[in-house]
Nucleic acid binder design. Structure first.
Lengths: 213, 213
DNA sequence: ATGGTTATGTTATTATTTTCACAAAAAGTG
DNA sequence: CACTTTTTGTGAAAATAATAACATAACCAT
């Protein structure tokens, strides 16, 4: 978890900057951006510094320049293709959400499922049988996959993704995936997140006298 | 972000323990649990220690006892009601996912939406008009809400939730919500998560020579 | 029993992250 | 043009978190 938090914050800054631009602003200061992104101004300057992003010593940052820099870092200019494995409940929602991804030039180009009844187009995205996945990945140079499969088959699916050459996985199955360390895995356990919020909202201040949550 | 990471890891441990139990195991060691949860054994012992969970100096931990302790901490024994605001694409998927939540005794008891066409039952969950929300929250003692509304209306919805007495929010809108600090907010920006995975998978090792991601 | 082995619980150490502090640069002002 | 103000950029300090180390308790074998 070295650079990961930097990246995450940078993406958040970008989100805020886009809104600032829509509101007609031209410049931001680490202070104003920090306020919007819920981060300290020093943190922002440090994060920018880490990626060589420079501002103007008196005039803060030019939003358009900042966005250019951030878009360059995140490869916004080329479209980045992603696949989706498991077109059940969550998978379906993500496929439908694709236009949200598309705005950021991330695009689910295909879905895969073992269930033959799922093999059809969803929102323009072709859903293909699981066996085709490795070839698809190789032929299209796919490097990142979104997994929305049941927990029982998740590790197996992960293995075949890695074998096919996938380098990054966003995983919604409630399991901690094991993969070679050159593969980036982001586990998103919706149940656990909800539960942690419930805990912090209801119980945290009663136990141990700990408030900070 | 004081206790939050502890909580999150504890929930992950529980997840692993449930699987261990299903596989017929009776005991775990910090080492074996750590391997499964992707965490160091010392970390696990530290986390347990923080919450007063004790093991057996030679025999590790009895899975059933551990699960009892964890379930006690997270209030697994009583059913915890949650509401959902915004029954669009993501919201709908979460409503349908409810049985997954239910297994953990977290339950979406109602959805709310401003769009009148959404006012109907989804998967047994009644969807009500937004105006009814404050009364519903008060009458049913709801403390936690899941927000899956568009970014433009998110802050406004957040405000009315807080006014209604909500203490914790799991937010899927791509915006950093501002709320009084006694309210716990967890922002889940699916685009940003995907983008960070893509970045780490493709670019991280090229820039700056940083590998750790 | 008793000695050896193993895994916990906790203290000490190290590493990482965040905050603080301040010099330097830009911009405005008289 | 000097002088003041403001905001960046960064090195030092503080706070947090993770890892290592080790004493202690439980178990096992003899």
């Amino acid at each position: 978890m070295q650079i990961r938090n930097n990246i995450r914050r940078l993406l958040q800054y970008r989100m805020c900057l886009i809104r600032f631009r829509e509101l007609g602003f031209e410049r931001v200061y680490s202070y104003s951006l920090g306020r919007e992104a819920g981060v300290s101004p020093e943190q922002i300057r440090k994060d920018f510094s880490r990626f060589g992003i420079k501002g103007n010593k008196r005039g803060g940052y030019l939003i358009s320049e900042l966005l250019d820099s951030l878009n360059y870092i995140f490869g916004k200019n080329e479209l980045q293709d992603v696949i989706l494995i498991g077109v059940g409940n969550i998978g379906m929602a993500l496929a439908r959400y694709n236009c949200g991804f598309f705005k950021r030039r991330k695009y689910i180009v295909a879905g895969f499922d073992i269930d033959p009844s799922k093999i059809r187009k969803i929102n323009e995205i072709p859903v293909l049988p699981m066996e085709v996945m490795p070839r698809f990945v190789k032929e299209n140079g796919i490097t990142v996959g979104i997994m929305a499969v049941p927990a029982v088959s998740a590790q197996e699916v992960c293995n075949s993704l890695v074998n096919a050459g996938i380098k990054g996985i966003m995983n919604f199955a409630p399991i901690v995936l094991k993969a070679p360390k050159h593969v980036v895995i982001e586990n998103i356990n919706l149940c656990n997140v909800l539960e942690s919020v419930i805990y912090c909202a209801n119980y945290a201040r009663d136990d141990l006298g700990v408030l900070e949550c």
